[in-house]
Computed example of a mutant assay.
Amino acid sequence: MASIINDRKASEIFQGQALLYRHLYAFIDSMCLKWIVELDIPNIINKHGQPITLQELVSILQVPPTKIDKVHSIIRYMAHNGFFEIVRIHDDNKEAYALTAASELLVKGTGICLAPTVECFLDPTLSSIYHQLKKWIYEEHLTLFEVSFGTQFWEFLNKNPSYNKSFNEAMASDSQLINLALRDCNLVFEGLEYIVDVGGGIGTTAKFISQAFPHLKCIVFDRPQVVENLSGNNNLTYVAGDMFKSIPEADAVLLKWIFHNWTDKDCRKILENCKEAISNNGKRGKVIIIDVVINEKQEEHKVTELKLLMDVNMACVNGRERTEEEWKKLFIEAGFKDYKISPLTGYLSLIEIYP
């Protein structure tokens, strides 16, 4: 075809249009995911015990006849995107929908369920802040959350118990996947007697560690509003405090998904407090970080895409995801001398740093 715009072929322009429209309507992906969780569809299919037909599903959901084709549209779209598998039932060759690895993660009552994460972050109040990206860019120090609500995210949680509860449940559900990955990380905890999980929430990961390593004493360290009324056991305790002021002494400090919430300046302060916490016991302690390490040159495109998307997402608190060089710079500036990065989950890495 002849050139049309800036010497581009019409085929290139059409591809550009398709990409533009894909992003224009990308918010529908999130809304369809929310729809799946709100209607409890993964649990319905799981309880059904076998792939479910459209007629069986709409019957259980009591969908009006006029909306059955719309249910089909959404289910078909989400199947195309990997949330359901379309199969044929042999008896009458009817089309039916089965769970995939993604939708199995939304089945409630199982060992690992990410439905609370979906419910939390797709709450209209929280997701609406991204309409303020333009205004946020011109505010020198304010976070996207402050631009939208006039307060920091953490202060908002402190003042709104229902959102605080929802956020803690979301973080606990995500920690279940981290626990799955940590099963193969015995060497990381070898030789340790005490470990403090900074920002450990309600203790999902600390409970796993304390059960997997009964000799290891675990401290869950978080905001007072998070750990109040939580009780531990012989090798698990809860301590309230502020990681910017001090961190309980231990052989190791664990921080999972903490640093991406904060600026470099804040991260250096946290690291300095970590260094002090592991240096007072007379042993060569370490800091264990579970977080994103961006590595565009060596990882798959889809993995990098997710990491870069998470980097944009952290605008809500002025945080960021980091490359290895950016991590290294933080470690050196905080007084650490050595570090080691290992893969952990599909997009999270495990970083061990030493004073």
Rank of each mutant, 00 (worst) to 15 (best):
154 W>T: 14
7 D>H: 12
66 T>W: 03
118 V>R: 05
49 G>S: 11
253 V>T: 05
291 D>Y: 11
349 S>M: 08
97 Y>C: 02
177 L>R: 12
279 S>F: 13
89 I>H: 02
51 P>W: 00
51 P>K: 02
60 I>R: 00
322 R>E: 02
275 K>R: 14
43 N>C: 09
27 F>D: 05
154 W>H: 15
295 N>I: 06
102 A>V: 02
44 I>D: 04
200 G>V: 02
40 D>F: 06
141 H>A: 03
287 V>T: 12
166 S>H: 09
49 G>C: 04
257 W>P: 00
158 N>M: 10
151 T>Y: 09
125 T>P: 02
80 H>L: 13
138 Y>P: 05
29 D>H: 12
330 L>E: 08
309 L>P: 07
175 S>Q: 14
211 Q>H: 07
319 G>A: 12
350 L>F: 05
254 L>V: 01
140 E>W: 06
194 Y>H: 15
310 M>E: 14
268 R>I: 12
231 S>D: 01
179 N>V: 15
289 I>T: 12
23 H>T: 13
181 A>K: 09
74 I>G: 05
43 N>H: 15
311 D>F: 13
89 I>E: 04
336 F>H: 11
14 F>E: 13
355 P>W: 12
212 A>G: 06
105 L>Y: 06
298 Q>D: 13
136 W>V: 01
25 Y>W: 15
129 I>P: 09
312 V>Y: 09
1 M>C: 07
14 F>K: 15
82 G>K: 10
23 H>A: 13
95 E>P: 05
174 D>K: 12
43 N>A: 08
351 I>F: 09
336 F>V: 04
133 L>H: 07
93 N>S: 06
48 H>N: 03
7 D>Q: 08
281 N>G: 12
4 I>V: 14
75 I>P: 02
136 W>S: 01
259 F>P: 08
139 E>S: 15
37 V>M: 12
42 P>L: 02
201 G>W: 13
185 C>F: 00
163 Y>E: 09
189 F>V: 01
331 F>N: 00
238 Y>L: 06
20 L>M: 12
111 G>W: 07
163 Y>K: 11
137 I>C: 06
229 N>S: 11
92 D>F: 05
323 T>N: 14
25 Y>S: 15
26 A>P: 10
253 V>Y: 03
156 F>C: 01
54 L>N: 08
144 L>T: 04
215 H>P: 00
119 E>A: 07
40 D>Y: 02
5 I>Y: 15
269 K>S: 00
120 C>Y: 12
217 K>G: 01
117 T>P: 04
31 M>H: 14
43 N>R: 10
275 K>D: 02
212 A>S: 07
258 I>R: 00
321 E>C: 08
26 A>H: 14
348 L>V: 04
181 A>E: 07
309 L>C: 11
156 F>M: 02
103 S>Q: 10
267 C>E: 11
92 D>S: 05
85 E>G: 03
272 E>G: 07
97 Y>G: 00
98 A>E: 06
219 I>L: 09
220 V>G: 10
